[in-house]
Amino acid sequence: MKLSQIGGRIEEINHKINDFIAEVQALCAIVCDMGGEILTTQGDTGMLDFVNIAAMAAGSFATTKGIANLLGQKEFSLLFHQGTKNNILISNIENFSIIIIVFDNNSILGVVKQKTTELKDQLKVVFEDIVKGQGIIIKKAKIFEERGPAAQPAAEPAKKEPEKKPEEKPQEKPKDGKKKFDFDSLMVDDLDDLF
């Protein structure tokens, strides 16, 4: 969902978010698209850096979705991160958008979770309505693309024995008798065979 698609419906969305914030006593809420571009912010916008919060939340969400994919799980629908004072809750509204709630310990986690689910349902209806009205097709965000197949076992060791380059410096003696990787014997020319 892009801001341009929401158009005049933004007031309605903001209104619902504000009601939610008042009810659960959250500090603020951010709604952004799946890429982290902000659609709206509400609440005590104080000194928070919303642009970066949204971008990082999108990154967090995308990687989480990737992990879920790897584990064969549909998705982790709700991400909760607990700090010492402030907490953050990230969730998605289908493939329309991501919602980020910042709240402190004045709010009760269970209530925030419950009301967030309700808010998501309300916003989903609005988004669906917008999509229907405008004939927009929301492509499923390609958040995680795993391009198989997996690597096969490593290639055979290079057969030819590379000659030592005369201009290379002798290797420094390892300290503490620890093993060191023998870089001097690694011939970068070997790599030519690989491409």
Binding site: D49, A57, I67, Q73, H81, G83, T84, N86, I88
Partner: peptide
């Protein structure tokens, strides 16, 4: 992916004024 996720979450923590979230928990079904 987990390192990226953890990194993003730590950045988020800093952005909302937390020194760090040492604990991250994701609940799936």
């Amino acid at each position: 992916l987990t390192a990226g996720n953890f990194g993003a979450t730590n950045e988020l923590a800093k952005l909302i004024g937390e020194a760090d979230f040492t604990l991250v928990l994701h609940e799936g079904n």
